[in-house]
Design a protein around this nucleic acid. Structure first.
Lengths: 273, 273
DNA sequence: GAGTGGATTTCGCAT
DNA sequence: ATGCGAAGTCCACTC
């Protein structure tokens, strides 16, 4: 048995994850492109191209140098040198046709429902990479601050037994309260949520909100800071200002959100308890 | 003066749009990556990597083979071999740091407001492309069917003078009416919109809707087919069924939508008149 | 700078 | 299959 690192490298050598051409002739490029698309490989083409799209809408992209990616599932991305979003694209499930006509590489990607067509024309190809990629790595995303808020609203006992949210993001002067409610003794509770160890700023903000609410209602008002932890020295400040701290791990919130939110909030740390 | 095709190729040769390395050692790859990011070039890295994200939320991506793109504007895309969307990303405006530590290429992309960090680690690089891309090609998108609908609603005179929409996408049995309203003589008008030359199916659908509406109201009901053109032989069918046709170019609709829609609906055919 | 609405949204889950 | 809501949405525009 070889060490996994070594065996992995051998595997990569035998699989040959990459076939690349630099500045190929159009017909050579077309050949590699056709092969890659036929074998459902991922494919990168860099070159000077123009694009016609027709389907739900229509668009035309004049010539320029771009990065075009074809994926194993039949999706297409045309990326300009700037911007997060592709300028043209096609969702997964496309059928392709490839032609080399009068020194122009033409690739058409079509799909049904809705019926859409993207045609890409290259008159200059700088690089073609046909890729045989293996990607089984798990992706896990855990709770955002907003997720923690939803978690508390959907299960108020996360904060404390008997807590009942009244409204959330209540507007006060200079901001919004994350969560706002009443505890089991009838006192108002103002909650400030942080998904990271809370610093001084979070505490001061909470104090400000508590003060604002106190000026509006004639009842006792508690201020509770919810975060996975507090930064060093902040605990003292919390006590000094008459506030409270409740530890809550954002990963735990992720597990609580079992309704539609489950989709992206998967078990990340199984050792969370 | 050289022909533009030739001069363009000379320009490409002198500019050197591509520096590529296949299966480089990690430190060599790091060198090219650092250079490309420093010079604000676009950059493609294909290899085995894992990713940590922390910011609005947090995520972890276990090792696998992916395509990673860095763009001139400081945006980052991590693409798995399938799917339209990047699994991890960073919007434009990032700052980068590159390190090669114990045979691992580490790239960090951070941005402020919101404060976010994406860390990408490669232990195996199959391909690195540093790109010097020139892309000034105009992108134009013109109206979708929905845009045409909005255009008519925002300027009913596109259909005819005196037309007043009542509601749109009115539900009838087996479908929705695109636009529904009253003409200047008080008759009901049912509008069916197509962004391409209308075929028999569109006409028959409109006829069905007209029939459905007639069974619901005690008033005259007109059926108007709106499209840039009608397919061959369909005009007869329209007349036979007692319907009407109104020619409307989707490109014209695009120009009508001058409110927020302007952003993507630019003048595409200046010779539209 | 914050807030609002659209997108060739995409994506995932519900019915 | 269709519809609904969320997204690390992104993006452009308004106040």
């Amino acid at each position: 048995m070889l060490p996994s690192k070594i065996s992995g490298e051998l595997e990569v050598l035998s699989r040959n994850p990459l076939i690349a051409m630099q500045n190929p002739a159009i017909d050579k490029a077309a050949q590699l492109v056709r092969e890659a698309l036929t074998e459902r490989k991922a494919l990168i083409i860099v070159g000077n191209c123009w694009v016609d799209y027709s389907g739900r809408a229509s668009s035309k992209l004049e010539p320029g140098e771009r990065i075009v990616i074809f994926k194993e599932d039949g999706s297409v991305l045309v990326h300009r040198p700037t911007g997060y979003e592709p300028v043209n694209w096609q969702p997964p499930g496309c059928l392709f046709s490839v032609r080399a006509v009068s020194n122009t590489l033409q690739i058409r990607a079509i799909r049904r429902k809705p019926s859409e067509s993207v045609k890409i024309f290259f008159d200059n190809v700088y690089e073609v990479c046909a890729l045989n990629l293996v990607d089984n790595g798990a992706f896990s995303l855990y709770a955002s601050e907003e997720d923690m808020q939803r978690a508390i609203l959907s299960r108020p006992s996360l904060l404390e037994d008997g807590f009942e949210p009244i409204t959330y993001e209540k507007k006060v002067e200079s901001g919004f309260v994350d969560v706002y409610g009443v505890d089991k003794t009838g006192k108002f509770v103002v909650v400030e949520i942080k998904r990271k160890p809370a610093g001084r700023a979070a505490v001061l903000q909470l104090a400000k909100y508590v003060k604002a609410i106190r000026s509006m209602v004639n009842r006792e008002v508690r201020g509770v800071l919810v975060a996975p932890d507090v930064a060093k020295g902040v605990q003292r400040l919390i006590v000094t200002l008459g506030l409270e701290f409740k530890a809550l791990d954002p990963r735990k919130c992720a597990l609580v959100l079992t309704k539609p939110e489950t989709k992206r909030l998967v078990d990340f740390f199984e050792d969370t308890g």
